[in-house]
Design a protein around this nucleic acid. Structure first.
Lengths: 123, 123
DNA sequence: CAAACCCATTGACAATCTTCGATGCGTGCC
DNA sequence: GGCACGCATCGAAGATTGTCAATGGGTTTG
């Protein structure tokens, strides 16, 4: 007998065993949770725009610059920056009055890699 | 003169014009919203697992099969399937008692393309 | 020192999301 | 017809998220 799943074009009849032999996903749920968290971080237009500006301006962007790049107020910008920082994607340095943010390109590459792997799994 | 932004390593002093000459993102906010919606769709472990199973089982997966693949109850599975369907990523066909779901691989490819473009913009 | 400035944090509110029990609808079986 | 089944939907509850005014802390300027 082949290893093909009980899920083929086999015509089921109402009583047939159905739900207990189901196809299983190729990753653990924990992996799915980890990847979902990655997508979640990118699932907001403000965060996408902030990352965009930060990537495009090597190293020295202050919060007020970022604030002028998105249609939300300063506390909201700080909020989203905090999320990005807690995820390790950006870090900040205080210089005098200002707080300069920059992307951690290594972390960003890791994130992109996780996205690639997950998407390539959706062949 | 080069085209470099006013945002270089120029030492600012407190009074200096700062926020009104800020670096702008490379995409419109509307584009960011559209892409954020794509990431949002992927930002849940159940939806990732459902897509995984659907992609891996060409065409004929019923809801009870999907239900056995994720740690949530049937109404929740139906809920997430609805989100995927409304996004055009999957469609369903009723055959007798069962509802068979399948991925729209064209739509899935479009989604992956949008992700790729956005991520490649984060150079 | 006082004032102005930049930014983080707090607190409150509204909106959205996630989940599941209960229910209803359509279908096949006896 | 009556029953069991598969699935969608509804309704409610709790959790999470997004937003901003207000506030406070740290710094520079005058």
């Amino acid at each position: 007998m082949s290893m093909t799943r009980a899920l083929e074009v086999v015509e089921r009849k109402t009583g047939d065993r159905c739900c207990d032999v189901g196809a299983q996903p190729s990753t653990t749920y924990a992996d799915a949770e980890r990847d979902a968290a990655v997508f979640d971080l990118l699932a907001h237009p403000v965060r996408l725009q902030l990352l965009d500006v930060l990537v495009r301006n090597e190293g020295r962007v202050c919060v007020c610059d970022l604030e002028s790049a998105v249609p939300v107020k300063q506390p909201t910008v700080s909020h989203h920056l905090r999320l990005l920082r807690e995820a390790g994607l950006v870090d900040s340095e205080k210089v005098g009055i200002w707080a300069y943010y920059r992307v951690d390109r290594g972390r960003l590459a890791e994130l992109k890699e996780r996205v690639e792997v997950r998407l390539s799994g959706l062949t």
